[in-house]
């Protein structure tokens, strides 16, 4: 009997239902303040908001085609999963997807994934990991480790801090006011960011990169067929800027009194234009291309730009 009493709270913390088309739900589960929350939903719209209560609350409508859903507490982890019928494996199945809003403890470690899902997530200070295939991600006011990934969709972020990683294949990344260490990757989509991140890695193919940083310690850009426009208000002590680009153009704007050693190599066409000083690029004795090596105001930072078939412009802010 004692054993049964011990198991009773656990039994009460599991909701596992057969669902019907467009079922509306409004459920709560007690949660630990910094526990894991996992959300697995195939289609629809998911909003996740961090709050001060030690409770996971979910409200909204389950996918029309869903077979069942499960909402349960397994100790340190709250799990919500919508199960779809096996015949509905195709992404473009009929009916409406889920439309759900979750409120979770703000220090939770969130792990959410879907196939055709638009995610909106905000107000979390634990780690955040979002994965979707066909869908957009909107992320605001997140901190710690943040990973946002989509294949076919855009990512809009605001006020992120910590270790940030955003990846999309077919879509844009638009970021503002983020700080910390940031990694942005697109294959066929523009990247824009106005942030105070200290270490930034950007990788892109076939796109426009337009980024502005306040104080940067380390910037690494790799691109193919991209127009790159970088503005930096201040270079931190011994900072390192590296840009590798094949085709396209590179425009780098730096403070007027920038203290840095520059090494700009331009291979096979393009050209180098320098408005930071009177230094002129050199032509190699043999073969195409240009190069510019110069040291300005004591050479505290290091700027290295290598391009193939791309024009480089160095400008004062």
């Amino acid at each position: 009997m004692k054993q049964l009493i011990k198991l009773l709270p656990l039994a009460l913390s599991i909701f596992c239902y057969q669902s019907w088309a467009g079922e509306k739900i409004d459920l709560n589960l007690e949660a630990t303040p910094d526990g894991r929350v996992t959300i697995d939903n195939m289609r629809g719209k998911i909003t996740i908001i961090g709050w001060d209560k030690n409770l996971v609350h979910v409200k909204g409508e389950i996918d029309d085609s869903a077979k069942s859903y499960e909402f349960r507490n397994t100790g340190n982890r709250i799990m919500f999963e919508v199960e779809m019928p096996r015949f509905d494996r195709q992404i473009d199945g009929g009916g409406e997807g889920s439309d759900l809003v979750f409120y979770i403890p703000k220090a939770s470690r969130l792990d959410a994934e879907g196939v055709q899902v638009n995610f909106t997530v905000s107000g979390l200070s634990g780690s955040t990991d979002i994965d979707t295939i066909n869908g957009n991600i909107v992320a605001k006011n997140l901190s710690q480790e943040i990973e946002l990934r989509t294949i076919n969709g855009s990512i809009d972020s605001e006020n992120l801090s910590g270790e940030i990683e955003m990846t999309t294949v077919n879509g844009s990344i638009s970021d503002s006011h983020s700080e910390g260490v940031m990694e942005l990757t697109t294959v066929n989509g523009p990247i824009s960011s106005v942030s105070s991140a200290s270490e930034v890695e950007i990788e892109s193919v076939n796109s426009v990169i337009d980024v502005n940083f306040t104080t940067i310690q380390k910037l690494n850009i790799r691109s193919a067929n991209a127009r790159i426009k970088v503005g930096i208000t201040e270079l931190a002590q011994r900072s390192h800027i590296n840009v590798d680009s094949v085709s396209g153009q590179v425009e780098l704007s730096l403070p007027t009194n920038v203290s840095a050693d520059f090494s700009v190599q331009n291979h096979a066409g393009g050209g180098i234009s320098n408005s930071l000083s009177a230094d002129k690029p050199h032509r190699p004795k043999y073969g195409p291309g240009r190069s510019l090596d110069m040291s300005l105001n004591g050479g505290n930072a290091e700027v290295s730009i290598t391009t193939v078939n791309a024009k480089v412009s160095l400008k004062p802010n």
Binding site: V169, N170, N206, N225, V308
Partner: peptide, 22 residues
């Protein structure tokens, strides 16, 4: 997951060709 990934692959292959020429 997406239909038009091959053109992106071709872009990268073109970039590799440019680099090899350089």
């Amino acid at each position: 997951a997406i239909n038009d990934w091959q053109p992106q692959l071709l872009e990268l292959e073109a970039a590799a060709t440019s680099l090899r020429q350089a």
